[in-house]
Design a protein around this nucleic acid. Structure first.
Lengths: 225, 225
DNA sequence: ATATGATATAAAGATTTTGTAAAAAAGCTT
DNA sequence: AAGCTTTTTTACAAAATCTTTATATCATAT
């Protein structure tokens, strides 16, 4: 019943075929475009719930397509790239991509990312407590509970956790986080982030050596789950 | 039998229709107004248990309607708005809104919020003394007892304590407290607050070096527990 | 296996924020 | 106006938080 529309923008026919089979067999309605221009037109004519966008396109860079789409399209866009290029990924995430996936990818992972991204489309009301496992975050009351007990967080720790919680499932780049919490001019102070992620993990994770909530995406940033 | 009256103030006919169907099928008696002026009149003529108030109205901003209603109406007001703007949320809640909902909303959530708001109405209307540990605060009689003994508080001290008590469990920022107690223009006089929190603690805490009631949230504000 | 780059932790400083006391000013009451 | 209470200022000590440095750990590729 919940047949969400997904638009694939990729020039490689094999990839498109693979994606189509995976997605349509999971109940999604799939549309395809083989270059940037066509993709933008299709998205405009019939806005999908989610767009899978390849970075390497024949007519223009996927980055440019992303930028153009983002002027009006505010649902999920997951970037695809052959190479595991960190600069590409970071660039895309900082310019509005919802998530990224490096080819080749496992279909289970793809589907999980898609579900998570579509779920996030349904904008949540920020004034209700957010629950993640045994951790409960009340953005309005500014309180965090773990197993019903109120945790003591410093102001920066709370800001950081709130940022993660509001972007559940999504990779936040170091630069983005630093800009949000410390402000412009602090984008390179990655060490601040390491220290604060460390203290946060000690406070909210069951076992801070095997984090379940704040996951690190090496070379890129962090993901809250 | 418990047919609470709900007044909808919204200019969009579809939304009003949708709300009416949802609410009346759940046993509420629904009244409708399509602009601010009409809404205020209807609320005055026949005060409902709860008001659903749209922020975007044709004749005046929902924020202004809220402000005017709050001069005499002290039951629940839930704000509705198309955009999920955090500044709107914070502004409305700071000016007396009971709750907030962004359109489009799911009817289950709406009903839950309404139940919760009406429940809170009843609690708040009882004006029963609030008890925290061995401290008992009677907002109506303006008295505070500790271990049955009446404490002598100055007017500002009482206002501050009442503000804390009414917002148990949530962090109140310095700015918010200063605005509420001293008024706009005093938002930066944090030292006033420190002095008064100090004297209050000496009066109500068992051991003012280890406060149990008024907790400080460094860099942010205070929390009453 | 080793080297490299990225990440994590611990602990020392530096800085900011908070608490307290006490003096000065402002209001009230008689 | 005197005497009292309350609020506002000032100054400094105490505590909490943030930043920095140093070092350890981990993952990955050669």
């Amino acid at each position: 019943m919940n047949k969400a529309d997904i638009l694939i923008i990729d020039d490689e026919p094999q990839i498109r075929k693979l994606l189509e089979i995976t997605l349509s067999s999971n109940g999604y309605q799939v549309y395809q475009a083989c270059n940037g221009r066509e993709g933008i037109l299709m998205a405009a004519n019939h806005p999908p719930e989610l767009i899978l966008l390849d970075i390497g396109l024949p007519d223009q860079s996927g980055h440019d397509v992303l930028k153009e789409l983002r002027t009006w399209y505010n649902k999920a866009i997951i970037m695809l790239s052959v190479i595991n290029s960190e600069t590409d990924i970071v660039y895309a995430l900082d310019h509005g991509a919802t998530d990224y996936l490096s080819k080749p990818f496992r279909s289970a992972e793809l589907l999980a990312r898609i579900r998570s991204a579509i779920r996030r489309n349904e904008q949540h009301n920020l004034d209700q407590p957010l629950v993640f496992g045994n951790v409960c975050i009340d953005l309005l009351a500014r309180t965090v509970k773990k197993n019903q007990e109120v945790l003591k967080l410093t102001s920066t720790e709370f800001k950081l956790l709130a940022l993660f919680a509001r972007n559940e499932g999504r990779v936040l780049t170091h630069q983005f986080i630093l800009k949000e919490i410390w402000g412009v001019g602090f984008q390179n102070e990655t060490q601040y982030l390491r220290v604060f992620v460390g203290t946060l993990r000690k406070k909210i994770e069951d076992n801070h050596n095997q984090p379940q909530l704040i996951l690190t995406e090496s070379g890129v940033g962090y993901r809250f789950h």
